[in-house]
């Protein structure tokens, strides 16, 4: 029970948060954070637990988003239907994706997934009649308040993390890990590696697609370069999981929080600290520095990633013991 205490407390805090916090800006950040929890956790199933490092998760995210958008565009259905279908359509895309990538291993798998992700982006750009091409798809958001979106995102995040936890704790989870550790050994012990890799991919694609569908509903606008972006989704999903801890259940959650917080921290110039100091001291240099910091939010995250990989190769959650030992000077014996 003690093991579950922290996540439960966290969940309670998150559930009560909109009652205490009325700021739209803050809720927006929290929704982004929850979306990244979903994306990072689903990437983690395929890569962290099954060892198939995908560089193409934007494909599933984008397909989920486009499912919602296209249902509205062509059938005039509410984009919320996308939340019902987005995940399944992403799985449908995932199956040929797996058929192409899974015979390949290691670096080749990574490259093939990258190429497929990029390929889908190009297809979405070119098929103008169907997807609207670079014009994108625009919908009117259903709710003006951010609170409903917040709860939907929270539900999605909780369901995804919970379902992933269930799967990882059960037999398929052990199969996944055995494939990651040694695929040939797993196969020789009678595990159908192709089947289980596809199961892992399906779970991963499903939740990423759901996150995409929610994104469409929340943001109200998508175009191929936004939702199929290699850098903004495929790579970010990886970095979120890496920073938090690959192959841990809650790692991506921590990573998502760090990523969103870090970027906002930089983007706002340490929450206006520089601006404040600049005004107080009357120094233009500090204000200028603040402006520079605001532009450097991606740079800051990039440096964080390098530092984490160098010193905490298993992420914040994976190397928590190490952090406790070295930073807080808590000995395991004491």
């Amino acid at each position: 029970m003690k093991k579950n205490l922290l996540p439960l407390v966290l969940l309670a805090v998150l559930a009560l948060l909109p009652l205490a916090v009325k700021s739209n800006y803050f809720l927006h950040l929290m929704i982004l954070f929850l979306l990244w929890v979903v994306i990072g956790s689903s990437w983690n199933v395929l890569a962290g637990f099954t060892g198939q490092v995908s560089f193409g998760h934007a494909a599933f995210f984008g397909v989920g988003a486009y499912t919602a958008g296209l249902l509205f565009q062509h059938l005039q259905l509410s984009p919320w239907w996308g939340m019902a279908l987005g995940g399944f359509v992403a799985v449908l895309i995932g199956l040929p994706f797996g058929a192409i990538c899974f015979p390949l291993r290691g670096a080749y798998f990574a490259l093939a997934s990258l190429a497929l992700g990029e390929g889908i982006r190009h297809v979405a750009t070119i098929a103008e009649n169907f997807t609207g091409g670079m014009m994108g798809i625009m919908i009117m958001p259903t709710f003006i308040s951010k609170v409903p979106y917040y709860y939907i995102a929270l539900a999605l995040a909780v369901l995804s993390v919970l379902s992933i936890r269930l799967v990882i704790g059960a037999k398929p989870g052990y199969y996944f890990v055995s494939i990651r550790e040694d695929q040939d050994a797993a196969a020789s012990l009678g595990i159908n590696t192709t089947l289980y890799k596809n199961i892992s991919l399906s779970i991963s694609a499903f939740w990423t697609g759901m996150a995409g569908a929610l994104y469409m509903n929340y943001m109200g606008f998508i175009d191929p370069n936004v939702v199929f972006s290699l850098h903004d989704y495929s790579v970010m999903a990886i970095l979120v999981a890496i920073v938090g801890g690959v192959g841990t259940i809650y790692g991506p959650t921590v990573g998502a929080f760090i990523m969103v917080a870090f970027q906002e921290f930089f983007r706002t110039g340490f929450f206006g600290l520089f601006e404040y100091l600049g005004e107080k001291t009357g120094s233009t240099a500090i204000s200028a520095l603040g402006g520079a910091v605001q532009q450097a939010h991606v740079l800051g995250f990039g440096i964080l990633v390098i530092v984490v990989i160098l010193f905490l190769p298993n992420g914040v959650v994976g190397d928590w013991e190490k952090i406790k030992r070295n930073v807080f000077r808590i000995n395991q014996a004491g």
Binding site: A107, A110, V246, V298, G302, I306, P313, G318
Partner: peptide
């Protein structure tokens, strides 16, 4: 990175992603 024990052997690749990000952002800066 060769020396450290990690779950994913792809850590070096991910490091190059981070490096690429930093280089791009420095150039943008």
């Amino acid at each position: 990175l060769i020396k450290v024990e990690t779950i994913l052997p792809e850590n070096q690749v991910l490091m190059t992603v981070g490096i690429g990000m930093v280089l791009t952002e420095i150039a943008r800066f």
